Simulated assay, not measured.
Amino acid sequence: MVEIVDDPFPGIEALNTLWLSAWNGPVAPGYGKVLERSLAHVGAYEAGVLVGFVNVAWDGGAHAFVLDTSVHREHQRKGIATALVARAAELAEARGAEWLHVDFEAHLEGFYRGCGFRGTAAGLMRLGE
């Protein structure tokens, strides 16, 4: 059974194991400091092992941002990511955010629409070009 945990502050080893499975690469150095500044983060654990994670960054005011939605490859398509995003939204609202934003690749549109996000106009600039 998967347990959803608010603000678990997982260790770098646990995050690296998850990131390697979900993203094929390690977590960014210093990620623990990122979590210290986040509005919230949510972990999914099975038998004490981190199998899913989402971070909620914010601007210190009304806007919060879903980042790093991750589920271990062996646990995908079981509703874990949906549960993580739903809990992240609850925490963001409870902690004062009025808006929850997310950026995603085109193949994830159905997932995020299913979580309740709607389309908006936005801009994107690739730095260094």
Rank of each mutant, 00 (worst) to 15 (best):
E74V: 07
L50Q: 01
A83P: 06
L84G: 08
L18N: 00
G96S: 10
K33E: 14
A122K: 03
T69L: 11
D103Y: 08
S70E: 01
G25L: 01
A40Y: 07
F104A: 13
N55C: 08
G110W: 05
G79Q: 09
P8E: 10
R77Y: 14
S21Q: 02
H41N: 11
A121T: 13
A106M: 02
N16Y: 07
H63S: 13
G123M: 14
C115I: 06
H72W: 05
V66G: 05
A83K: 15
D6W: 10
V54T: 03
A14G: 06
I12D: 10
A97Y: 06
H63T: 12
P29G: 10
W58T: 06
L50C: 03
D103A: 14
G61D: 06
R95M: 15
V85S: 04
A28M: 10
E93P: 03
L84K: 07
F117N: 04
R73C: 06
I4D: 08
T82C: 05
S21E: 03
G110K: 02
L127V: 12
R113T: 03
E13I: 13
L127R: 14
D59K: 00
G61F: 08
G60M: 00
W99E: 13
V2M: 14
P29S: 11
V49N: 12
A89M: 14
C115Q: 09
D7Y: 08
M1Q: 06
F9L: 06
P26S: 02
T17F: 02
A83R: 15
A97L: 05
R113E: 11
R77S: 11
L15G: 04
K33S: 12
G11M: 02
G119M: 10
E129G: 15
P8L: 02
T82G: 11
A47V: 13
T120I: 13
V54M: 01
